[in-house]
Design a protein around this nucleic acid. Structure first.
Lengths: 325, 325
DNA sequence: GTGAAAGCGCTAACAA
DNA sequence: TTGTTAGCGCTTTCAC
């Protein structure tokens, strides 16, 4: 392994000059700086992050906690985080809690010491998590908190309702997800109208969607909004098995607009947001806090919530309401 | 931050005793060990991995490189890696190269110094990657190499062919993927029969599958095996637009058996393997090499390839061959 | 502008 | 069995 000493020796300078030339170029005379840079490159010198962090109190890494990496929703967020972190020259420690709150807390405890800050994507135990992380900055996704990135759930729901009402639907069902879901609670609040019947909680799975089919049909709704795209798939499938057509007899709107929505048949109209942007924004928020921290500007600990716009992508699963019999 | 010194002071022992009590318990008298452990827990002491690694020459972290985290295939592998790494108490640095070989090499260069070894999932530039990583152990997935985890592609293809032939299909098309794909090459080799017509290369996307539709129809095949599940979706869609039915007129077999296969309509018969197991095996292989390395047993640098069985999950996209006109 | 030296938190000889 | 000591590679005062 090539170290600062090797570079220093080869360049005929001290190790501190090497260190400065590489991480604080303005403090070094141009010729020296260039010579050091050239030799470092030639020798293939790679600074040891762990060592640098040990001294400087930074680790050069971010932590990302997701409940399930195999879920396309979180996979997309993770991709956004990885992308932006790389641009900032930071590493990303990814942990998958497998939807288990206990695991969440456990892994965070060790993550906290190996990172400069963490991003909690849809955490299942926010408060315990915060405590486990300690003093390092925490950005939450789809949760309330001083540093948060959320989707404009209300806007998404409004768009969907407008879309459906414009198609003549007068009675709309909402197939809700887990009771612990932050988004679900927000959506229920945003729906709150007389012509919307909220169902659930249901499991956020194909089976969950299928289980809701009877209730949806019984509700007399001509359109349904589901907790997520997978639930929509289950609902569509079960409703069809009952001899109804989608979208002719029942329009279905999914949520999250994962790549799944475009792949299934019928392609799902879906409420969504740019998931990679969620990851990018969360990273940006965290990195901003990291660099701001030492300077301690006046609004240093100021809370900040980034709200990303909700979108509605219209595809084939929604159409005009059937004539009332 | 609680350090060894704090624990040592509180326990009335030296810092080395604390270190030993925690990482080499058998070297410390039981009462001392227990007291230190109790105090460490009470104080909420978390060892600083970076510092430990700096001294011991290990970082306590693994690197995982994937071409696209949002791809369900790699997401599943990543989940397996994360799971097993956690069991070993190791962190996972995840990098997404966005399918770009140049990015791959660049990120690996810095990854190499922050990890004890790396896993390359379907790397796009293996040789350059190896060089970038340097001396640290490298496990490749779906590639040839001294330390590799691969799927038994031939077995999967054989199962699919047997399944299709058993249904009476006599002419079968293979819709191939990117020319650079290791799996694609293996599959073509495994197909090699007179009644199989290999098409492509095609993009591994819905559009790629759709683009292959005409060629598949023109080939006179009554069944098609596609590069992956997404391509299968594209093929099914395009073939249906041409007025043919799936599976009645054309049986379709996907590859990878991602969760997608079960969600689309018709649910796809798919050649697959346990993706999480791929991640787990790769991690196991890497960890084994890490712990073996210092001891330097006789077969220390011995190559090892784990071949995971290929499977065929039969769903709704395959049925008996149509009667020859 | 540059060098010498003191650690960051920890582990691993080496002593006792 | 336990304590003392010397660093791992780097950043960062503090002199010059």
């Amino acid at each position: 392994m090539v170290t600062v000493r090797d570079v220093a020796r080869a360049a005929g300078v001290s190790i501190s000059t090497v260190s400065r030339a590489l991480s604080a170029p303005e403090m070094v005379a141009a010729p020296t700086r260039d010579r050091v840079a050239a030799i470092a490159a030639e020798l293939g010198y790679q600074p040891n992050r762990a060592a640098a962090g040990l001294r400087a109190g930074r680790t050069g890494a971010l932590g990302l906690l997701v409940p399930d990496l195999a879920n396309p929703y979180f996979a997309a967020v993770a991709k956004g985080v990885a992308e932006r972190a790389r641009e900032h020259g930071l590493g990303v420690f990814v942990v998958d809690s497998d939807e288990d709150p206990a695991v969440e807390v456990e892994v965070l405890r060790s993550l906290a010491h190996q990172t400069d800050g963490v991003i909690l994507a849809s955490p299942r135990a926010v408060e315990a998590d915060r405590e486990a992380v300690g003093a390092k900055p925490v950005v939450v996704v789809n949760q309330d908190g001083p540093l948060a990135v959320v989707t404009d759930v209300a806007a998404g729901v409004r768009l969907a309702l407008e879309h459906l009402r414009g198609l003549g639907h007068r009675r709309i069902a909402y197939v809700g997800g887990p009771a612990t879901s932050w988004s679900d609670a927000r959506r229920r609040a945003a729906l709150g109208d007389a012509d919307v019947v909220a169902l659930g909680p249901h499991h956020p799975t194909v089976a969950g969607g299928a289980a809701a089919a009877d209730a949806v049909v019984a509700s007399g709704a001509t359109a349904a909004i589901t907790f997520n795209d997978v639930v929509a798939v289950g609902l569509v499938r079960a409703v069809r098995e009952r001899g109804l057509r989608v979208p002719e007899d029942l329009s279905v709107v999914g949520c999250d607009d994962t790549f799944l929505a475009a792949l299934v048949t019928p392609a799902l109209t879906s409420i969504g947001t740019d998931l990679r942007e969620v990851g990018r924004s969360a990273t940006e928020l965290l990195v901003g806090r990291l660099t701001a921290a030492p300077g301690s500007g006046p609004d240093d600990a100021a809370p900040a919530t980034i709200t990303l716009p909700g979108t509605l992508t219209v595809r084939d699963s929604t159409t005009t309401a059937p004539p009332t019999p």
